[in-house]
Design a protein around this nucleic acid. Structure first.
Length: 151
DNA sequence: GCCAACGTTGGC
DNA sequence: GCCAACGTTGGC
């Protein structure tokens, strides 16, 4: 079991879009950063991810999602009409992948970045040290500390 | 809205 | 292959 954190701007796609109450599955498409893509490629079915809301005040972890399908080709890279179109990608040699996720549970209240910063055991989180990486690994120790905040 | 940090692009 | 210029992200 591996743990991750994925970021999203709630105005664009937030926790509410996951339709947790319908147990819906969605594609995590549009990732256009190689480091983030490589993390997605390392994801295994059943892995858990914190679902983080960025560019809001305050930024926070809203919930937990589960990986329900491992990395496969993100079709939005081939469509010139799409925001995520990549003219340098091709169907013979696709650059970008996506995974499928499903809401696991919403946190009883958000865990804000300020709260994370106050906890010494979380000081090495990628979230605090490479704030631009949109898909990032979380250690089991970090995962357990945060989950214990909102059991 | 500002701006620092980071990733990517492209000229050389 | 270097690195300046540029675009984007994201906390504040």
């Amino acid at each position: 079991m591996q743990y991750w954190l994925m970021k999203s701007e709630p105005d664009v796609y937030g926790w509410s879009h996951l339709n947790a109450e319908k147990n819906a599955t969605d594609h995590w498409d549009g990732v256009r950063n190689y480091a983030a893509r490589n993390h997605m490629r390392a994801m295994k079915e059943g892995d858990l991810c914190f679902f983080y809301h960025s560019r809001v005040n305050p930024p926070h972890i809203a919930g937990i999602v589960k990986v329900v399908r491992e990395a496969y080709v993100d079709p939005t890279q081939f469509d010139p009409e799409q925001k995520y179109y990549d003219p340098k990608s091709s169907k013979d040699n696709p650059r970008w992948d996506m995974v499928d996720i499903r809401a696991e549970r919403e946190l009883s209240s958000p865990v804000t970045i300020a709260e994370i910063k106050e906890i010494p055991a979380l000081k090495d989180m990628v979230l605090l040290n490479n704030s631009r990486l949109s898909v990032q690994p979380v250690t089991k120790e970090e995962w357990d500390v945060i989950v214990a905040l909102r059991p």
